[in-house]
Computed example of a mutant assay.
Amino acid sequence: MLKRRYHTTWMILSHIIFKIVVNKFDYNMNNQDATLKLFLSINEKISSIEKQVRQLSLKERNPLGDTYLDTDEVCELLKICKRTLQKHRDEASIAYIQFGGKTLYKKTDIQDLLEKHYQHAIS
């Protein structure tokens, strides 16, 4: 779905830019090569931007659907120090994954933890 959206966006942008280029220049035999070169250059730049957007998108999402946070991100999010986070891990009050020396936390688990300890206001 995401790939199709990028492809469709690229096709629409290419078509729009080509129409702009053709309308901007007199489309005759003398500047046909210049127009084609300009279009190919713009097309190449759009492809480069599309590739960069795709790479950024892959960094943001996880194929399993969950987003994982590292220790620093969780500490910043919860406004606690690393030692306090370690204490929560030791007490098993926070879920985590330890893999290859790296400790990760599911973002949804952190959100659930916050919801669980949320204190409602007394009306």
Rank of each mutant, 00 (worst) to 15 (best):
Y96I: 02
K59T: 14
S14F: 08
T108A: 11
L77D: 13
I80G: 00
K3C: 07
Q111T: 02
T71L: 00
V22G: 07
V21K: 11
E60T: 10
Y68L: 03
I20E: 05
H88N: 04
H7N: 09
L104D: 03
L58I: 13
I42Q: 12
E115K: 03
K51R: 14
E50C: 08
F25R: 15
K37V: 01
D109K: 08
N62A: 03
H7R: 11
L36P: 04
S14I: 06
I94W: 01
D33M: 00
R4K: 15
L69I: 01
F39N: 09
V21Y: 09
L77S: 14
L85D: 09
A92Y: 15
N23D: 12
H88G: 04
F25E: 11
H88F: 07
Q52R: 14
K45P: 00
Y27V: 09
I49E: 07
S47D: 00
L40T: 09
L38I: 13
H120K: 13
K79G: 08
K102F: 00
F18A: 13
A34N: 12
Y6P: 07
E73C: 03
F99M: 01
F18Q: 08
A121S: 12
K106A: 08
Q32W: 02
R83N: 08
C81G: 06
K87Y: 02
Y118L: 03
